[in-house]
């Protein structure tokens, strides 16, 4: 007798305590020792190796499923400590999910303890460069000759570097201040305008791990916003996020 070909696989979102109560119809908890993986059954017609390679280049599909992955983690994080997995952890057999939990128990348990009772907040700083430069107050005179034009170009260039350095200092100081109100924090690369679609330049893209219910970091971001707002720099808090930024093993160096 030939076994029916498998048509589904198991998509793993992340790991919670084996004792976690998540009561969700479409999600299953696969327990192994103290840990449980949160999985759902997915069709191989979409999540098979070849199919996936194509779907991932379908912008709408990628957005829908990246958001779905995030949405599940958000909902889990609201009721339990959760270690988010990166998108695309897929197994054909549930047994292999158990093997994963067994083999990486140390790492996963450590990550779970690291984020327990904590949430991730994002803080971004946006610079309106024109307003910032205007606030600096050193307006340049209109050039009256070719030579003056060249001089002005040079001055503009120098000033651009100076402005950039000042924006960098503001972002660096802001990150240092925010870190004082966080358990951990990381400054990720700011997104370029092509991604943000905004006129302002992102100069800080920070992620911070804070105790759930601790308002201090958001308060500090609001204070920074108030301090720098008149100069065209706005601070924005996003989240709470599942702790994506704080589950990978810390760098050795």
């Amino acid at each position: 007798m030939i076994a029916a070909p498998e048509t589904t696989a198991w998509y793993v979102y992340g790991v919670v305590d084996a004792s976690a109560k998540i009561g969700a119809d479409q999600l299953r908890l696969i327990g192994e020792g103290p840990l449980a993986a949160v999985v759902s059954e997915v069709p191989l017609s979409e999540f098979g190796e070849e199919e996936l390679a194509q779907r991932l280049n379908d912008r709408a599909w990628l957005e829908e499923h990246a958001r779905a992955h995030e949405d599940v983690l958000q909902r889990l994080a609201a009721v339990a400590a959760v270690v988010p997995f990166r998108f695309g952890a897929i197994y054909r057999e549930l047994d292999d999910v158990s093997v994963l939990l067994r083999e990486r128990r140390g790492e996963l348990s450590a990550a779970l303890e690291r984020v327990r009772g904590r949430i991730e907040l994002g803080v971004k700083a946006w610079a309106d460069r024109d307003r910032f430069e205007a606030a600096l107050g050193d307006a340049l005179p209109e050039p009256s000759s070719g030579r003056a034009y060249l001089e002005r170009r040079r001055t503009e260039h120098e000033r651009a570097g100076r402005v950039g350095a000042q924006l960098g200092d503001i972002a660096r100081d802001a990150h240092a201040r925010l870190l004082r109100h966080a358990v951990e924090g990381v400054a990720n690369r700011p997104h370029p305008r092509e991604l943000t679609g905004r006129d302002e330049a992102m100069i800080l893209n920070g992620a911070y791990l804070v105790a759930d219910g601790d308002e201090a970091l958001a308060g500090e971001a609001a204070a920074l916003d108030a301090e720098h707002g008149a100069r065209g720099i706005a601070f924005e808090v996003t989240g709470p996020w599942p702790p994506h930024n704080f589950v990978e093993p810390r760098d050795e160096v």
Binding site: V12, F47, L56, H69, I90, H244, N245
Partner: peptide, 29 residues
Amino acid sequence: QLADVLERVLDKGIVIAGDIKIDLLDIEL
């Protein structure tokens, strides 16, 4: 924002090599 979601979901989190191979670096997009 989509960029925020993609940054977190595709570039952060614990990396698990399941048995369906998926290489996010191969995604053209």
